[in-house]
Amino acid sequence: MAIKRIAGKIGGRAALLAPLAFIVVFLIAPLAFAFVMSFWKRVGFQVRPGFSLKAYASFIHGPQHVILYHSLWMAAAATLVSLVIAYAAAYLAAFRLRRSATRVILFMFAAPFFINYIIRDFAWTDLLGRNGPVNEALQWVGLIHEPLSWLMYSDFSVMLGLVASYMPFMVFPIWLALVGIDQRLVEAATMLGARPWKAFVMVTLPLSMPGVFAAVIFGFVGSFGADAVATVMGGTGYQLAGNTISSAMNILNYPLAAAISSVVVLSLLVLMGVWYAVFDIRTFLGRLVR
């Protein structure tokens, strides 16, 4: 009996390790392998193990460096815009709506995220095209006299695509952090004479930072590695880090694709490391992780 129980216990323990093993084999190992491959040499159309920094050199100093800096800039700007919109939405959902309304609004924010963003990007090209409804509506109202050409296939449209792709999901970590704040702290600040604005800046905002930072990681890394948005909404020749991975892969330049991918993943790991070191995950997932 005892032996059976001990065996059962070990078996149960092993079963609990299955998801972790799965993540290691199908996520960690591939990313590590791509990192190793980014140093390999390219001979003709073949890739040979070795140690070469050529791929990184071309991405950081060489022909592709424009792409790197443009991607970083677009990702940072898109994250900032998304953050302002998402924070306001999360704040209102947390403090200004009835409980039942909060749930509906959060669901409404979540839903578009799950619909293939490639499909949504196609739809934006329709909406923002020269003869699309947005241009027609603006002309009908009389705000403009001829179609705006910068609405589509421009930095503007790519930015819109990035914000529309990642902003909805940034609402959640911020909302989680906000509802976790002990409201007595805000009341105390108000009672001690802080104006509402000051109470927000000194109490609510700092306490919501774990959620804000999680949202920033999600938005920034997502935008930095975005592929379809740049291809569909940027038009021919518009390159961000994400779709440069695809085009490098298409011309079989695997070390370059691996190097760009590794830069994106390393930026993720650095940001996550900061998050893990600075914030306690439990402050906003407290009810889930004891």
Partner: peptide, 22 residues
Amino acid sequence: LFLVLLPLFVPGVSLGFSEGMW
């Protein structure tokens, strides 16, 4: 939790490319 949530943060192309190579 950190390990299980990690895939959420890795961009699609990076993951696709790395998994394909792996």
